[in-house]
Design a protein around this nucleic acid. Structure first.
Ligand code: MN
Ligand code: MN
Ligand code: ZN
Ligand code: ZN
Lengths: 152, 152
DNA sequence: TTCATAATGCAACATTGTAGCGTTAACTGT
DNA sequence: ACAGTTAACGCTACAATGTTGCATTATGAA
């Protein structure tokens, strides 16, 4: 779907995977979204595009994409993972959780690259920074509607 | 159980709640632990102390404690909440997730108080900093046992 | 002691995700 | 173009974590 960036099929094939209906549709769905989607949101997306799919297959497709580094996974505060296309080499940035619409946004500008003074004895692998608040689009409607689209 | 700090019963009563068997036992369990516990771990703790309890009541007791600010809740990467006693006024510090034993530790020394440059349009309420790695006690046994106690 | 109701205990249900396993279809090699 | 291999699918069952409804209990107050 993207112009000069590799197609979904190429992305999948280049990682040694078989190009299947569900995988292609998932990559396209994640790529078209400006924020990471839950399994359920991806499923709804596929249904809307009339792509037949199975719940479990969808879980496995998402897992595979994450495993290959094509997508990344962010924990939501509603204990549902969000999946997003990896747009920068090493996916390392903060995430913003909107408490109003429940959406998660990648803040590629905000990198948790500060020196962390660990108490000692701890071996640090990775830092995860999650910002909670209200997203721009919710701020615009915060005075109008009481509970816009999303869950929670 | 603590000496000069308020007893569990007092803590509960002072927040306008009824002092019940389960609530007292939960507060004691959380207070005795050096790290936040899952619902399941608290349940095991109560069982060990021969405190009869119900699964749902336990969930409700934990929710109530969080609501009153007596306990705080940390999201685990295994999508099970961890509950810990609030030991400092406003609970605001980083948490360490051990990828080996699965335990979560409160790092009261590490406060995410850096100025975050948000992309604009976002309204920040709260920053959550989660550090992933191996905890001190796991580091000691990392060469001996393959998979010590905890889950995941 | 009595009373109002907060809190409990139980059963049923919801959500998110996994495991097993027979079947299908995507690629490979000819 | 065809056949064979096997990755991936699709289905059913199951697991883990948490929630909802409602009748019953027992806490704290009068
Ligand atoms: Mn991201
Ligand atoms: Mn903490
Ligand atoms: Zn929002
Ligand atoms: Zn550990």
């Amino acid at each position: 779907m993207s112009s000069q960036s590799p197609t979904a099929a190429d992305l999948i094939a280049n990682h040694g995977g078989r190009v299947t209906r569900t995988r292609v549709a998932v990559v396209d769905a994640l790529d078209a979204s400006d924020h990471p989607l839950t399994h359920d949101e991806v499923a709804a997306n596929l249904s809307e595009a009339d792509v037949p799919h199975d719940r479990v297959t969808l879980y496995r497709a998402l897992d595979w994409l994450v495993d290959k580094g094509i997508a990344h996974r962010v924990a939501g505060s509603d204990r549902a993972w969000r999946y997003g296309i990896v747009r920068e080499a090493p996916h390392q940035h903060a995430h913003f959780h909107c408490s109003r619409c429940g959406n998660v946004f990648c803040l590629e500008q905000v990198q948790p690259a500060f020196a962390i003074a660990l108490p000692g004895g701890y071996q640090l692998d990775r830092a995860e920074l999650i910002l909670h608040g209200v997203c721009p689009s919710c701020l615009l409607t915060v005075h109008a509607e009481p509970t816009p689209p999303g869950p929670r």
